[in-house]
């Protein structure tokens, strides 16, 4: 796997693309957690997820990329927007989106980043993965899911059902908890 690994610099073509997409993802993620407008945060999240989907494509995981676009961009963000709407959040810039915990949070986050980056760079400096397109296509993935991972898949469907019911119960005001 690391036999004929080329050097880190200069990056190859896919790597350049991935780095650009990664930069977009990180940048938009930063915007998500720093913006002063709720709706903008949700929209920047779309961009971030999109960039990540692009990254998955570069990594030859095309099925995951499409699922990412479908579920995250299509469903999750829409749900979040609904949430923003239903909680009557203000449209436009609002001041109080950050709590007083902000500086401690920044400190912890930077420390986390430092530790993680240090560790992964130390650990995977020489790791190289040659890319073979078609590896993550729908067919091999589907075969894998329904042959090998079918039991977790079914369990997951039950989980989804439970989540569905739970969400309904939680959102309906006419179902009271047992006092």
């Amino acid at each position: 796997m690391t036999s004929q690994a080329p050097g880190l610099w200069p990056p190859s073509g896919p790597e350049v693309v991935f780095l650009l997409l990664g930069a977009v993802a990180v940048g938009t993620a930063l915007l998500v957690v720093t913006t002063r407008q709720l709706v903008h945060a949700a929209l920047w999240l779309v961009v971030c997820f999109g960039a990540l989907a692009g990254g998955y494509l570069v990594l030859t995981a095309e099925f995951v990329a499409w699922v990412q676009v479908l579920i995250y961009v299509g469903a999750v963000v829409v749900l979040l927007l609904f949430g923003i709407m239903l909680t009557r959040a203000p449209i436009g810039p609002s001041a109080g989106l950050d709590s007083g915990n902000r500086w401690a949070a920044a400190l912890v986050a930077v420390a986390t980043a430092a530790v993680l980056v240090t560790v992964v760079v130390t650990g995977f400096r020489t790791a190289y993965a040659p890319l073979h397109p078609g590896q993550g296509a729908a067919e091999p993935l589907g075969a894998s899911v329904f042959r090998i991972w079918v039991l977790p898949f079914e369990a997951l469907s039950v989980l989804l059902l439970a989540a569905l019911i739970g969400a309904i119960v939680l959102s309906r005001t006419d179902i009271r908890g047992r006092e």
Binding site: L19, V33, N101, L116, Y128
Partner: peptide, 27 residues
């Protein structure tokens, strides 16, 4: 593709998520 690129991007994204969880007031 060097593994270190996606992994570093992932680490940064995770840290940004940590910051968001800790610093944001709106649920």
């Amino acid at each position: 593709m060097h593994v270190v690129y996606p992994v570093v991007v992932s680490a940064l994204l995770f840290s940004i998520g940590v910051y968001g969880v800790l610093a944001r007031r709106n649920a």
